[in-house]
C-alpha cells in the first residue's frame, strides 16, 4: 500500500484500467446484457437505452461483444505471453549457462527467427498452417519467444560471469539448481518488467492479425476484428468502430504506464 502511495498518477490510472478490464473479462457472462453471438436486432442500430453502443454489422449487441471481447482478446494475449515467456526465459538461461555449441545453435536459430519481421512471419506461417485460434497462439508464442530468449540470455550471461556461479559450479551443483536457485532470482525483476512490455506487443499483435482477418475468427467476439467488421460506419462519421480500437489503445497505454513506473522504480533503487 505504501507502494501505491508513491505511484505517479499515470501508474494509478493504469492499475485502475487494468483491474477493471480483468474483472469485466472474468465475469463477462454476468456483466454482459446479451449473449456473445446473439442476434438482437437490425444491423448497425444507433446507440439507444436498449443497446448503449448500438448493434454491429450482423445485428449483435455491440456492448456485449465488447465485454466478451475483453475476455477473449486479453485472455489469449495472456496465454500467448505466458507460453512465450516461460519457454523463452528457460531456454535463454540454459543457453547462457551452457555456453559453447549449445548456446551457438540456439542463438543462431533465434537470429533467423528474428531476421524476419514478426507480422510477416506470422502471416506466412498462418498461411501455411491455416488461421485458427490454437495455430495463432502457437505461431505468436514462437515468434515472441525469440526476443524473450535474447533478453533472458543476456541478463543471465551477466549473472553467469559472476563468481558465485563459479563457486556453485566448483561445488559440483547440477544445471537445475544453478538455473532455479542461482540465476533466476537475480534476473526475475528484469523478466517481470519485460513481461509487461511483451504483453502489450502480443496484445497489439493479436489485434492487428484479427483486424487483418487472420487472427481470432468469427463469430468469436474480439476487439481487433470488431473494428474491421464495423469499419464502414466511419465513413458516415459514426465513432462506434473506434470504441474497440480505443479500448485496445487504453489497455496498452495503461500497462505501459505501469511498466514505465516499475522500470523507473527499479533504476531508482539501483543508484
Amino acid at each position: 500500500m505504501t507502494l501505491l502511495r508513491t505511484a505517479p498518477p499515470t501508474a494509478i490510472f493504469g492499475l485502475l484500467v487494468l483491474a477493471a478490464t480483468l474483472l469485466i473479462g472474468l465475469f463477462a457472462p454476468l456483466v454482459a446484457p446479451y449473449g456473445e453471438t446473439e442476434i438482437v436486432g437490425a444491423e448497425y442500430l444507433p446507440w439507444s437505452a436498449e443497446h448503449p453502443l448500438g448493434t454491429d454489422n450482423l445485428g449483435r449487441d455491440m456492448l456485449s461483444r465488447m465485454i466478451f471481447g475483453a475476455r477473449n482478446t486479453v485472455g489469449l494475449a495472456l496465454l500467448t505471453t505466458g507460453i512465450a515467456f516461460s519457454v523463452g526465459a528457460a531456454l535463454g538461461m540454459f543457453a547462457a549457462l551452457k555456453g559453447g555449441w549449445v548456446d551457438q545453435l540456439m542463438s543462431r536459430a533465434v537470429d533467423v527467427l528474428m531476421a524476419v519481421p514478426p507480422l510477416i512471419l506470422a502471416l506466412m506461417l498462418l498461411a501455411i498452417i491455416g488461421p485458427s485460434i490454437p495455430n495463432m497462439v502457437g505461431v505468436i508464442a514462437v515468434i515472441y519467444l525469440a526476443p524473450v530468449f535474447r533478453l533472458s540470455r543476456a541478463a543471465a550471461m551477466n549473472v553467469v560471469a559472476l563468481d558465485f556461479i563459479g563457486a556453485a559450479r566448483l561445488r559440483g551443483e547440477g544445471t537445475v539448481w544453478l538455473l532455479r536457485r542461482e540465476i533466476l532470482p537475480n534476473i526475475s525483476s528484469t523478466l517481470v518488467a519485460e513481461a509487461g512490455l511483451r504483453f502489450c506487443f502480443v496484445f497489439l499483435f493479436i489485434a492487428a492479425l484479427s483486424f487483418l482477418g487472420i487472427g481470432i475468427q468469427p463469430p468469436t467476439a474480439d476487439w481487433g476484428s470488431m473494428v474491421k467488421e464495423n469499419a464502414t460506419l466511419i465513413t458516415f462519421g459514426d465513432v462506434t468502430p473506434l470504441i474497440p480500437a480505443g479500448a485496445i489503445a487504453l489497455l496498452t497505454v495503461s500497462i505501459n504506464f505501469i511498466v514505465d513506473w516499475m522500470l523507473h522504480r527499479a533504476s531508482g533503487l539501483k543508484s
Binding site: L162, D163, F164, G166, A167, R181, E182, P185, N186
Partner: peptide, 9 residues
C-alpha cells in the same frame, strides 16, 4: 574470491 560482492549470491 576477490570481490565478495559478486562471489556471494
Amino acid at each position: 574470491y576477490q570481490m565478495a560482492d559478486t562471489a556471494l549470491n
